[in-house]
Amino acid sequence: MAEKKKDNLLELIKRLVETPGPSGQEHQIRAAVREEIEGYADEIRTDALGNLIVRVGSKKAGGMRVMVSAHIDEIGLMVTHIDEKGFARFLSIGGVSPLTCLGNRVLFMDGTRGVIGMESIEPGTMPTLDKMYIDTGATSAKDCPVQVGDVCGFERPFLDMGKRLVAKSMDDRIAAAIAIEAMKLVKKTSPNEIYFVFSVQEEVGIRGATTAAYGVNPEVGIAVDVTGVGDTPKGFKLNVELGNGPAIKVRDSSFIADPRVVQWMVNEAKAQKLPYQMEVLTFGGTDGRAIQMTREGVPAGCLSIGSRYIHTPSEMVDRADVENSIKLLAGLLNNKIELGEL
């Protein structure tokens, strides 16, 4: 029985990471998420920017209106010009490193495929995106199947390594998977009114969560997102490591997590005897920022999943971290929320 459940989790992750959805083009991934959660929701709506907002439960005595945000967009590319020979020049949507582009395959929203090539550059210099192009197999501008403004994502199948899971757009589909699984664990006895937001346009500046949070008007909020790790050879000097448990964010460069929310998360992890680690990130930003900045301000934090190789087509997370994050999130949502003193 337990074995079967694990398979379900893998299948969910595989489906989510393999569905394309660069920022602004989230319709396919939104539809996929919607199918997954339909049976568990009390109310589902899509707002003006395309955020999928899912309510579970309603507020009971002692409960709070909670927003959980996992962004469903991913980084990608947009065509800026088709040159005379049919090569498509492009611009990144979100933070795409030129180092991860060359030779990669891309998938357009209509199913068209392409590969990324590059002009010759000075040996020893860094490539830049404006020296690169997408080759769709076209022989001239005329028969090029894509046009200016068309959007593609990277194409890479999901890879199950056992302990570790690898895919493009683990950022932030792994969080969508965690939110969906936690949603399934929400009990009828929870006093809280929970809004699971599958937000859009995070990668281009935390835009979707901004408007979603305004609409939800939460009393407390948690973003779920990936974070950088410091456990690779001569990598970032970061405290978080794969496999050490869910990371509880204290800050990143976009916001200072509310200390009350941080402590609430620590207390829940301790209560469930889950492994956890504290996260201080000196770069990056998440939907937590948007929730915090809603209306008069909202206590907000972020549950992070350590990930290697973020914003490459091979983002790696630890399976136990994912499972523990589901448990932590479900626990946070199922109980009366005690935010300490301000």
Binding site: D47, A48, G208, T210, T211, A212, Y214
Partner: peptide
């Protein structure tokens, strides 16, 4: 404009 309130297409 598009980020104001609940979002504006």
């Amino acid at each position: 404009i598009h980020r104001v309130r609940e979002g504006v297409p």
